[in-house]
C-alpha cells in the first residue's frame, strides 16, 4: 500500500515535471522570440548619425530636383551661403542647452521613452548645412543628418536678421527634434509608397532600389510639411533657441505674422507647403504666451540700436 502511494506520487511528479517542461519550453521560446523581435525593432529604429546623414543626402537630392539650389558662382551668392551657415552654426552651438523634452516643449507631441532618448542623443554627423533654393515660393525643408534648405522666397519674406534667425531656428528644430524620422517611423515602417517619381527613378528591386524609393517617399512627404503638433513644438524650441542665441524672441512672432500676411496675400493653395501648417493665428498666440510664461527677456546688449543696425546691415548686404 505504502509503495503504491509512493509510485502514485512519483508518477504525478513526473507528469507535472513533463507539463512544466513543455509549458516552460513554450514560454521560453516566446520570450526568445519577443527579445529577438525587440532587438530587431531596435536595430531598425536606431539610426547612427552617419546613416541619417546619407538618408539626408538622398532626401536633399530629391528636394533639389524639384527646387534647384542657387549656384554659388559669385561674391554675392558666396556671401549669402556663408552668412546663412555662420548663423545656423552659431544658433546650433548657442542653443546646446535648450531642452529637447517633449513635455517641456509644450507637450504638443508624444514621444515614448525610447523615442525621447533618441531625440536627447541625436547628433549631427557633419553639423548643420544650410543651402538656398532658387525659388520665390516660400519653402523650407530640414532633412535628417542636418541639411536645411531655405528658399529665396522664405528668406526675402524676412525684414531683419532676427526674423531670419527665427526661420532658421524653427527649421533647425525639426532636425534636432527628429521630426522627420519620427514621421517616417510611424508612417513608412510597413511600406514605402509608390509614386510616379519613385517608380521613375527606381524600378528595380534589392537594397539599393529600396533605399532610393525611401528617399523619394521621404522627400515627397517633406514637401507637405510637418504635422501641426510638430510645428507648435518647433515654434517653442525655435523661440528658446533664439533667446539662447541673443536674438529677440519676439522675432518668432514677427515672422509668423509675415507668414500670415503672405497666406492672405497669396491665397495659399491647399497643396502648397504652408497649407499643411496649423492655423497661423493659433501659432502666434501660443508663442506670445510662451514668451510671457517663461519670462524670456530680450538681451539688452544685442538690442541696442547699434547692435540691431550691425545685424541688419549684414542681412541687407546679403539679401536685399
Amino acid at each position: 500500500m505504502k509503495t503504491n502511494t509512493l509510485n502514485l506520487w512519483f508518477t504525478r511528479f513526473l507528469a507535472l515535471a513533463a507539463v512544466c517542461t513543455l509549458v516552460g519550453c513554450s514560454l521560453f521560446n516566446k520570450v526568445v522570440e519577443s527579445i529577438s523581435a525587440i532587438e530587431k525593432a531596435q536595430l531598425v529604429d536606431k539610426y547612427e548619425p552617419s546613416e541619417q546623414y546619407y538618408l539626408g543626402r538622398g532626401v536633399s537630392a530629391v528636394i533639389l530636383d524639384r527646387y534647384p539650389p542657387i549656384e554659388i558662382k559669385n561674391a554675392q551668392t558666396e556671401r549669402q551661403v556663408a552668412y546663412l551657415n555662420d548663423m545656423a552654426g552659431y544658433i546650433e552651438r548657442a542653443s546646446q542647452s535648450v531642452t529637447r523634452s517633449a513635455l517641456r516643449l509644450g507637450d504638443h507631441t508624444e514621444r515614448d521613452h525610447d523615442q525621447q532618448q533618441q531625440v536627447y542623443d541625436l547628433a549631427l554627423y557633419k553639423g548643420v548645412q544650410v543651402g538656398i533654393l532658387d525659388t520665390e515660393d516660400v519653402a523650407a525643408h530640414g532633412t535628417p543628418g542636418g541639411f536645411l534648405w531655405l528658399s529665396y522666397g522664405a528668406i526675402k519674406m524676412c525684414e531683419s536678421e532676427d526674423e531670419l534667425a527665427a526661420v532658421v531656428a524653427h527649421e533647425m528644430s525639426h532636425i534636432i527634434l527628429d521630426h522627420g524620422m519620427a514621421n517616417y517611423r510611424i508612417a513608412y515602417k510597413s511600406e514605402v509608397r509608390n509614386s510616379t517619381l519613385s517608380d521613375t527613378w527606381f524600378s528595380g528591386s534589392g537594397a539599393v532600389s529600396n533605399f532610393g524609393r525611401l528617399c523619394v517617399t521621404y522627400a515627397e512627404d517633406a514637401f507637405n510639411g510637418y504635422n501641426p503638433e510638430q510645428e507648435f513644438e518647433s515654434d517653442n524650441w525655435g523661440t528658446r533657441a533664439l533667446t539662447a542665441s541673443g536674438y529677440d524672441p519676439n522675432a518668432m512672432v514677427a515672422v509668423l505674422k509675415r507668414v500670415e500676411a503672405y497666406e492672405k496675400a497669396h491665397d495659399v493653395d491647399p497643396k502648397d507647403y504652408l497649407a499643411h501648417h496649423p492655423p497661423i493665428t493659433e501659432r502666434i498666440k501660443t508663442v506670445q504666451e510662451l514668451i510671457k510664461s517663461e519670462g524670456f527677456k530680450v538681451n539688452p546688449a544685442s538690442q541696442k540700436p547699434e547692435a540691431v543696425k550691425a545685424r541688419n546691415d549684414r542681412f541687407t548686404a546679403a539679401f536685399k
Partner: peptide, 13 residues
Amino acid sequence: NASFAAPGFNEEL
C-alpha cells in the same frame, strides 16, 4: 520591406 532598409545607409548604397 523597403523602409526597414534605412539602417545601414552608407556611401556604398
